[in-house]
Structure formats: C-alpha cells, structure tokens
Design a protein around this nucleic acid. Structure first.
Lengths: 168, 168
DNA sequence: TTTTATTTTCAGAAATTTTTGAAAATTCAG
DNA sequence: CTGAATTTTCAAAAATTTCTGAAAATAAAA
C-alpha cells in the first residue's frame, strides 16, 4: 500500500497548503483526492476516503465544479453523479488564479482606485503622501496584471518555457 | 476629516484582503495603518487607532518587523519604541512574497519532491498517473520560480516596466 | 402517480483562529 | 541597585470558520 500512502500524504499536504492560503481544507483535500484518482469518484466514495460528512463533501465538490476545475461525469446505468478533476495543471492553476483575482483582488483594486480619486485633490503633505502610497500599490498591481495577461495569452502548453528563454 | 476617512477605508480593505489570503486581520491592519501614517507610531497609538489590545498590537507589530517590512525607530528623549513602514511597494511586496514562499510553499515542494521520488518506481498505470500529476505540479512551480527569480534579479525600480516592454 | 435514490440545504455543534488583558519579564533612568 | 516605564507572554475568552447530520428538495424509476 505504498502508493495509497503517497496519495494520502499528497491529500494532507494539499489540505494544509490550502488552509494557509485561504482555501477551505476540505475543498483542497477533495481537489487533491480527485487529482490523485484514476477514476471518477462519487460523493459517497469521497466522503468515505476523506472521512467527512455528506454536507461538507457536497459543498466542497460544488465549489470545485463552480471553479471549473472538477467536472461532473455520468456513468451509464448509474444514478449517482461522479466527479473527475481537470488534470492539466496549467489549466486548473490558471482557473484558480483567475477566479481568486476576480473575487478577491479586483474588488480591492476598485476601492483603491476610489480612494485614490478621493485623495487626489488633497494638497496637504500628509494627503499627498497617502495618495502616493495608494497609487503606488495600484501601479504595481497593474504592472503585474499586464505581465500575467501576457503570460497567459501566449499560446501553447510550454508558454512558461518560452518566456524563460525569452528572458535569458 | 475626509483624509482620515480614506485612510480608515484603506485600513479596513487591507485587513479584509489579508484575512482572505491567510494573513491575520490585525497584522494587515497595522501594516495599512503604518503605510498610511506620515510619522512613526508607538504601540499605544496603534492600539488606540485600531482599537485592539496591547497583546495583539505587540504581536502584530513584531510579526511585521520580523517580515522586514516595518522598522523600529527610536525617538530622542522618548523611552517608547516607534514604528515606521517600508514605503517602497516593490520592496515590501517582495519581502512578503519571499517570506511566504519560504515558510509555506517551499516545505510543500519538498514533500512533493519526496512523493515524486517514492512513486517513481511504481509501474502500475495508477502509480504512473499519480506520479505524473505530482511531477507536473513540480515542473510548473519550478518554471514559475525561475520566472520570478529573473524578474526580481533584474535591476532598478522599474524592472516590471522593462519586462513588459521586453514581452511586447 | 408513488416510491425510492440521490442531492442540497442550513441550523446548530465543533473546531480553529484570533484577541484580550493581566501578570511576568525586561529595560532604563535616577 | 531601585523602581517606574515599557514590552512580552500566554491562558482563557471571544469571534470566526468549518463541519455535521437530519430534514427538505429534487430527480429518476417503477
């Protein structure tokens, strides 16, 4: 049972990493479980493997499906739903990144833009300094966004490899 | 009190963003407070502004000092310690990134490497598939790390700007 | 339709994380 | 030294997040 042990370690590690980065442990573990599975799994199998409740399993799976990194799979002659993880790392990593950016980063940037506008006319040294602080964050974020867009709009699976060469 | 309002909004927004990304709310708020302050602040001033306890203030400040993004500042004739935030966005953003990578990502990558090694000899289809899944994560991570290193080893403050042009 | 399997929901319970605040430790002026 | 100011620690309380499990809803079969 060496392989099963390795899979379990992967699931545990992934769950812990998720927790540290604001992704629910169960969600991360279900993702890891499906990533390491060779076959589609039902909710019951997931519940059993991870020792979690039906409610938790259901919600975790749904979130992953919503993210677009886990797919529903119907199996002929079976009434239950089965689930498979997107196995292409670049695909699922990008989807997670894009989703978190939209949900968590973009709203913050909107607020910063607003703060920036509201403090633009302030002519006190204190006001000018604060305005610059906020503006600097915006500029850096915009630059990083531009780079990220370039990266991900490049074609092919080895886009990163190409970029690394480009930067040499 | 328009400016103070804007600062408060910045502090609140920053605290919320931190929470979503695994950074303690108080820590993020103290960081935002010092970022938006024109002068060094004492623990008591921070406690008062954020309405948090001494223990919380102390621990949050210390963490930021440990990260290297807040500096202690001694004021002549005053026994209290004062604190100032690093104002260069690129500097503090990089320090946060490097610190979290070392503390949270690198240990995970070490485990993945170990899992990878332990499943290398497995010749079953299931074993080979799992090995590939883990390996793929490693490869993507290594590529991203290479790119990040290139980015941050480039000189100057407008390194990102240069890169953007380079990629055009 | 009725029955049975399956999925979804969500209020309360449990677990985890964060915060408090007072005591202990440290620092420094006199 | 001594004693006051300041900082640090950490057990317990509070707040927040996560999880459970049973009931409600839905979907498919009979």
């Amino acid at each position: 049972m060496e392989l099963q042990e390795a899979k379990q370690q992967f699931i545990d590690t992934w769950g812990a990493l998720g927790s540290e980065w604001g992704i629910n442990k169960s969600v991360a573990q279900v993702h890891a479980l499906l990533l390491s599975a060779s076959n589609p799994m039902s909710t019951d199998e997931i519940m059993e493997k991870l020792v979690i409740s039906r409610g938790n399993a259901n919600m975790s799976i749904r979130q992953l499906v919503d993210y677009g990194i886990v797919y529903k799979k119907h199996i002929a002659g079976d009434r239950k739903e089965y689930f498979v993880a997107e196995k292409d790392v670049l695909k699922w990593a990008m989807k997670i990144a894009v989703m978190r950016k939209q949900k968590e980063l973009d709203p913050v940037m909107d607020i910063l833009r607003e703060i920036s506008k509201n403090t633009e006319k302030d002519k006190t040294p204190e006001g000018k300094e604060f305005h610059k602080t906020v503006k600097d964050i915006q500029v850096l974020t915009d630059q990083l966004e531009t780079i990220a867009n370039k990266l991900f709009n490049t074609s092919g699976g080895d886009l990163l490899l190409k970029l690394i060469k480009l930067m040499m």
